[in-house]
Design a binder for these strands. Structure first.
Lengths: 200, 200
DNA sequence: TGGCATACTAGAACACGTTCCTGTTTCTGG
DNA sequence: CCAGAAACAGGAACGTGTTCTAGTATGCCA
């Protein structure tokens, strides 16, 4: 009759060993996903590669979807840090938004299996993954809004328009995963949406 | 060493008994989904309720995702038949598109668990389900394009704009399933997207 | 330092989608 | 009507995500 509170491990109180475990887990996840996509990320395999017991893996990430969405969040952060170093070039909001979205799209297409794994997890996310999903979406939204503004003043529907573009962006990735469009068409469709939606 | 060709059952050569089986299966699927959502649609249970062996169920629908996407296709067809009886009211393309999309959204929200099951399946669909997914999307796209045109002439980007709206429509349903927005916000966001995207 | 809660390991156990096997029924061509 | 093929029933078996159990290690507080 122990009072095991099942406290989730929060980032704040993490010891060094725990941070190391978390990072080994995420690294193993990204490696497996990059090599074999969603189905290749098997929880037993992730645990083994990160030298962590299966139960421990589940203590850090309560489901496969949590795990992959968290991995995506860390990837988006990396991408965001890289892109926000300098202002996106372009005269219009559409051109600047196109710049960052093209870079993001190309960056993802460089590792198609990793992308498949992460996007599929995003789609499978239910309410229990809301926090992790939100951090991915915030990262993407920031990227787009910053680019649109281009250092200039904010405009009335910036955030809403960025949300629409992000929806289209995700939807086109899904269409690609679903075999409905080719990889090359992903960017073409997104670009078309940008020009239709952002008519300055 | 039999030469079982594992011929999929196509709609054309179906006997009456086969059509009946297919419909019992779809009915059982919709009933289970409406009651308990995606996870309540368990293949063993569907088989039992439709009085069909598990193997037979898999002969008709090669996976749970195929099954649910097919169910959605039949629902979209029903909805489409009902809505296309008369022209959508409204002066502008935005108003007419809003009309059909609001009806569709409301219709889905009446059975939230069923919607959850179908949308989740759409998102989980990989390339092997492309045919079924395409039929759902064509149904929705027709609905939107017809409403936009409102009996008038077609315009340059009708189809592309309808595709964007459909992407947003799906994305907002997912956001709702993912607990990121409330049911009531689904329609508000879609409506906003319509006014932003369809500025006549 | 000792005691105790918490975290971790190792691995069994469970659930459900999916596959496979064996025997039976139904359909179809001759 | 008959023979073979295809479809079906019933159910065992398998894979992988998830949960649970028992024992061990680690960090914290008096």
């Amino acid at each position: 009759m122990t009072s095991t509170a099942a406290t989730a491990i929060t980032a704040e109180t993490e010891t060094a060993a725990q941070r190391a475990r978390r990072e080994r887990i995420l690294a193993a996840t990204l490696a497996l996903a990059a090599r074999g996509g969603y189905e290749a990320v098997q929880m037993r395999e992730v645990a083994e590669r990160s030298e962590v017991a299966l139960g421990t893996l589940y203590r850090y990430f309560p489901s496969k979807v949590h795990l992959l969405v968290s991995a995506m969040a860390s990837e988006v952060e990396r991408l965001s840090a890289r892109l926000q170093k300098r202002q996106a070039p372009g005269e219009t909001r559409a051109e600047r938004a196109a710049f960052v979205l093209e870079r993001s799209t190309r960056s993802l297409q460089r590792e198609p299996l990793l992308t498949e794994a992460m996007i599929r997890a995003m789609m499978a996310a239910d309410a229990t993954v809301a926090t992790e999903v939100a951090s991915v979406r915030e990262g993407m939204a920031d990227l787009i809004v910053q680019a649109m503004r281009g250092g200039g003043p904010e405009q009335e529907h910036d955030v809403d328009l960025a949300a629409i573009l992000q929806d289209v962006w995700f939807a086109r990735q899904i269409a690609w995963l679903g075999g409905r469009i080719e990889a090359a068409d992903v960017w073409r469709d997104i670009h078309l949406a940008i020009t239709l939606v952002l008519r300055d």
